[in-house]
């Protein structure tokens, strides 16, 4: 099982390297190789998650190692979807480093499966966390697309029209996908917060306890409300929207790692 995780990590690392090489000199062969490595990593990763599920008998997201591994897994899943749906060039070169870094942080976190405290053993675990993770993956993807937008925008403004410019997709499609992803992530985050409240009620008897995770999730939620409002009402498209989606994801990351590692609360998993 440990081997499987390390193997997936290795394949993601290899995909990252090929992805970076692709930024400088791409060919059909490098693209295919990058996708192949990512797919292999994803396959092994999936087996790893299923195994942990079977061993612990609940969704393997009850410690930070498992959670970040599952987070990375959701991003790769979404990456394949976006790649399949839009076929925009070089997405993998930008997304795989993020996946790899999350997996790397997951790899240094303690891995042992501890019994889940009985109050948390409920179907809410699956529903609440899956919603949260896929929502977060969408925000991650939106931020990465935002970075691609900023790079391409920089090239166009400065009139540096080199080979990377040639291969990056057009601004409009990047902006559209960025928006689309946030409209996927936002309702999922909303539902995650609602289901979380319901679960808290059934487990601990109150909907909202101002636990740090809850607070930061709410902050994240407000940020994305602002992102959507700015785009739809004020007309913050393109560059500003790209910046906002990156800021939003930074907060997501803090909510994800920072809160668990720095602040204590109900969500700090079973310790």
């Amino acid at each position: 099982m440990v081997i499987l995780f390390e193997l997936a990590l290795t394949f993601y690392f290899a995909a990252t390297i090929v992805g970076v090489v692709e930024l400088f000199r791409s060919s059909k062969a490098t693209t295919r190789m990058m996708m192949g490595l990512a797919a292999l990593g994803f396959l092994i990763h999936t087996v790893n998650i299923i195994l942990r599920y079977v061993l612990s008998n609940h969704l393997p997201i009850t410690n930070l190692h498992e959670a970040s591994s599952f987070f990375a897994w959701s991003i790769v899943l979404l990456f394949f979807y976006v790649e399949y749906r839009y076929r925009i060039g070089l997405l993998g070169s930008f997304i795989m480093p993020v996946v790899f870094l999350i997996m790397l942080s997951s790899s240094i976190l303690p891995r042992e499966i501890k019994p889940l405290s009985p109050v948390l053993q409920s179907y809410w675990l699956g529903i609440h966390t899956t919603l949260a993770f896929i929502g977060d993956a969408a925000f991650a993807m939106a931020a990465v697309i935002g970075v691609m937008y900023l790079v391409q925008e920089h090239f166009l403004k400065r009139k540096q029209l080199g080979s990377l410019f040639q291969r990056l997709p057009n601004l409009q499609i990047l902006d559209e996908i960025n928006y689309r992803l946030i409209t996927i992530g936002f309702p999922l985050l909303t539902l995650a917060i609602i289901t979380g409240a319901l679960w808290a009620e059934s487990a601990w008897g109150s909907y909202w306890r101002w636990d740090p995770k809850e607070v930061w999730s709410l902050i994240t939620w407000f940020i994305y409300v602002f992102v959507l409002h700015a785009r739809l009402r004020v007309g913050w498209k393109g560059k500003k929207a790209a910046y906002l989606s990156i800021i939003g994801f930074a907060v997501v990351l803090f909510t994800f790692f920072g809160v668990n590692l720095l602040l204590k609360g109900m969500h700090t998993f079973v310790r």
């Binding site: 391409q152 166009l156 029209l161 410019f165 990056l168 057009n170 601004l171 409009q172 499609i173 559209e176």
Partner: peptide, 9 residues
């Protein structure tokens, strides 16, 4: 060509 890098369609 530049127009195609700004607009999708």
């Amino acid at each position: 060509e530049l127009a195609k890098k700004i607009f999708a369609d």
